[in-house]
Amino acid sequence: MASIMKEAPNGYESAIELINSLKHEDLTELGSEVLQFLQYKIGAVNTEKWRKKLEESAEGNDLQKTQSIINALIYTFRSAARYRVTVEELTAELDSSMVFSDKTCTILCNLWSTQGKQLMSCSLGDHVLGVGQLIDVQWKVGMAMSSDTCRQLNSPFVTLTLTVADAGGNLKTHPLELTMDQFRNFTNQLKEIGKVLEMV
């Protein structure tokens, strides 16, 4: 089994420390909601609702801390599903990490024993976890000189070619042609995604 902790993103351990401070019933309810989210039974985990609820449990809890708690739970359960770990393997992994309290380890493993099989079921597992992998990005800048409707178009464009491996390992190529404004918007969105991923 690959180690969940070795691949954990930055900020994971500090989020687990926040999780350790939660009340038993709050962690059980939040963990169950995260598992429902991962199984597409609910559309999202309501961060604002949980921020208000956890203010009592975690002193000075703000929206960013609440989001990091939710992200850490999502990462933990997603990783367990990806590696198809048993309850015993998950217990051993969390115990050996020295980051999870006994209470947190017990709650997460109990949740995994009751809901983990649904998350790992073949069709659901492929849907939730088989999102594809970006293999290659090729790009080039071009200039459209004219078109059927405009003789002097002189408009720059960017062509992106994305190569993606699907859940079965098959490679698919997706070409995109973007105007300069669309390309700027695309790069800004990638920067936003990068900032969000750094907060996980």
Rank of each mutant, 00 (worst) to 15 (best):
Q39W: 06
V45G: 05
A58V: 14
N61G: 08
S57R: 06
S57N: 12
R51A: 14
I42K: 05
T47A: 15
S68M: 11
Q64G: 11
K53M: 11
K53W: 08
Q67Y: 09
W50D: 07
N61P: 03
T47L: 10
V45R: 01
E48S: 15
T66L: 11
K41V: 10
Q39T: 14
W50P: 00
I42N: 05
E55S: 11
N46R: 06
E55C: 07
E59W: 00
K41Q: 10
K53I: 09
E48H: 11
F37E: 05
T66F: 09
E48V: 15
I42E: 04
T66Q: 02
T47C: 15
T66G: 00
K52F: 13
A44Y: 15
Q67C: 01
L63Y: 10
S68T: 12
Q39S: 13
K53V: 11
T47N: 09
L38F: 07
F37C: 05
E55Y: 00
L54V: 05
Q39K: 07
G60A: 12
N61Q: 11
G43R: 02
S68E: 03
E55D: 12
A44I: 11
G43N: 05
A44G: 05
V45D: 03
G43H: 04
I42R: 00
K52T: 11
K52Q: 14
S68F: 04
T47G: 06
L54M: 02
F37N: 06
E56I: 14
S57H: 01
I69T: 04
F37M: 00
V45S: 03
W50T: 04
K52W: 12
A58P: 01
F37L: 04
K65T: 09
I70W: 05
E59S: 11
I70N: 01
A58E: 08
L63S: 12
V45Q: 01
I69H: 01
D62M: 00
Y40C: 04
N46L: 02
E48N: 13
L54I: 06
K41H: 02
V45I: 13
N46I: 05
R51H: 05
L54S: 02
S68N: 10
L38Q: 01
K41F: 04
L54Y: 01
S68L: 09
D62L: 00
L54G: 02
G43E: 09
E55V: 10
Y40D: 02
N61E: 11
T47K: 03
A58M: 08
Q67L: 12
K52L: 14
Q64M: 14
E55L: 12
K65C: 06
L63N: 10
K52M: 14
L63E: 12
E55M: 11
V45Y: 01
E59P: 04
A44F: 15
E48Y: 12
E55H: 02
Q39E: 08
W50N: 01
E59Y: 02
E59T: 03
E56H: 06
E55G: 14
